[in-house]
Design a protein around this nucleic acid. Structure first.
Length: 408
DNA sequence: TCTGGGGTCCTAGGACCC
DNA sequence: TCTGGGGTCCTAGGACCC
């Protein structure tokens, strides 16, 4: 029998912003951007939530609901730092910690009783340690599975602790809306409601086979979840198993839609660079590159291409992405969003050409040097993308390979 | 309500191979 | 020349999560 904690930070982005600006405390705060910008709410303070503001709500809508709220931009680097501190606190309680996202974690506390006492006591100690060391509040759910721990931390919010006694899982879950089950979103909820299933208890009454015949593999997992089991996919894995990334992507939504091909291609160059840099930081080489294109009417296409040899080189990424863009963009149509996505990670293959050192490798060296400069002097110190319009014309006309120039 | 950005996982069809 | 049944890879799209 396992003891799993799910630790969920309360209003994480808002709380971190309050650490940097205590005057925000107790006020209606919306993190995500200016009220007149395109975009959605990343996080809202409990004060703002009283007015119906919640994450994923468009900023403009949030402004209508709560015009007196303070709108602040997000600071991803601050959140990453705090998240790291949260991890360090958790890691002292158990070696098996898994950050499920920037603001929540699973901790496998099985077998820690001698050190930390019974689960509820350990949770209180953890809660206080978190408060003392990060000045942040969290909620803790305790259960015999990830699923039950996760749902109980949600019920414990804000700033609470809730333990589901082993054996009581089904009783705890039965009265909850099916929507509370992780993985059941709007669409699945609607599909279940049509069948007269509203509560997790309704779901638990159905037999596995009828759920499987209606929803396939997912239905089978759902039957298990209704009984509090970690059924299917990710939920089955051990807490703290190293999970390496499967994809890296960057995308950008314009504040105003555009059909200017030079602007669009400059954006793709910048996004390709960002993806390349992340690949190099993580020591990854991607074989599949994907363009994402969203038009003004929100219709969205993705177009992918798989390379012979995996890459982490900006220009190689950009060339593929640009080719996909030129082949698939209906010229003249206004674009709302562009994205660059890299996946199918592999070890780099042998890249040697007849001269020994390949252009690919020379590029890798040049980029590694640029990365080091950026680390040292900041993000603006080196940019291959700035002034992209001019530069890429140079690259295509005078220097077709786009290689670093040799000294004259 | 005029809809971000970063991910994961699943499905389904076609190509291709045995 | 009316034609099976895998298995794997690739691509496109969609549901879902924070």
């Amino acid at each position: 029998m396992k003891t799993i904690f799910h630790v969920d930070m309360d209003a994480f982005f808002v709380s971190v912003e309050e650490l940097f600006d205590p005057s925000l405390k107790g006020k209606a705060v919306v993190v995500g951007g200016r009220p007149n910008e395109r975009g959605v709410v990343s996080a809202a303070s409990y004060e703002a939530r009283k007015f119906g503001v919640h994450s994923a709500l468009p900023l403009r809508t949030a402004y209508k609901l709560c015009p007196h709220a303070i709108f602040v931009d997000g600071h991803p680097d601050r959140y990453r730092d705090c998240s790291q501190r949260v991890f360090e606190v958790l890691h002292r309680f158990s070696p098996q910690v898994e950050m499920a996202s920037i603001d929540e974690a699973y901790v496998d506390m099985t077998g820690t009783e001698r050190l930390h006492g019974p689960p509820l006591r350990a949770a209180h100690t953890l809660h206080e340690a978190m408060r003392a060391e990060t000045q942040l509040n969290c909620s803790i759910g305790i259960g015999t599975s990830r699923l039950v721990a996760k749902i109980s931390s949600d019920q414990a919010k804000p700033n609470g602790i809730l333990m589901v006694i082993p054996g009581q899982e089904a009783r705890f879950l039965a009265p909850l809306d099916v929507r509370k089950v992780p993985g059941v979103g709007k669409v699945t909820e609607r599909n279940l409601n049509v069948l007269g299933i509203h509560k997790v208890g309704d779901l638990a009454k159905l037999d596995e086979s009828s759920l499987e015949s209606r929803f396939g593999k997912w239905g089978l997992a759902l039957a298990g979840k209704a009984r509090g089991l970690d059924a299917g996919g990710w939920f089955d894995s051990e807490v703290g198993e190293d999970i390496e990334p499967k994809s890296i992507s960057h995308e950008h939504t314009y504040n105003e839609d555009t059909s200017d091909s030079e602007v669009l291609e400059a954006t793709l160059a910048r996004l390709s660079e960002m993806v390349g840099r992340r690949l190099r930081e993580n020591g990854l080489h991607a074989r599949t590159l994907q363009l994402k294109l969203r038009y003004q009417d929100f219709s969205t296409i993705t177009r992918a291409h798989t390379l012979e040899q995996p890459t982490q080189v900006d220009t190689e990424i950009f060339e593929e992405i640009r080719a996909l863009f030129r082949k698939n963009w209906r010229a003249g149509r206004k674009v709302r969003l562009l994205g660059v996505h890299a996946a199918s990670f592999e070890a780099a293959g042998p890249q040697l050409d007849l001269l020994g050192e390949s252009k690919h490798e020379r590029w890798e060296q040049a980029l590694a040097a640029a990365d080091r400069l950026r680390d040292k002097y900041g993000e603006s110190a080196v940019s291959l993308a700035s002034g992209m319009r001019g530069r890429f014309r140079e690259r295509t006309h005078e220097n077709p390979a786009g290689l670093p120039g040799k000294p004259k």
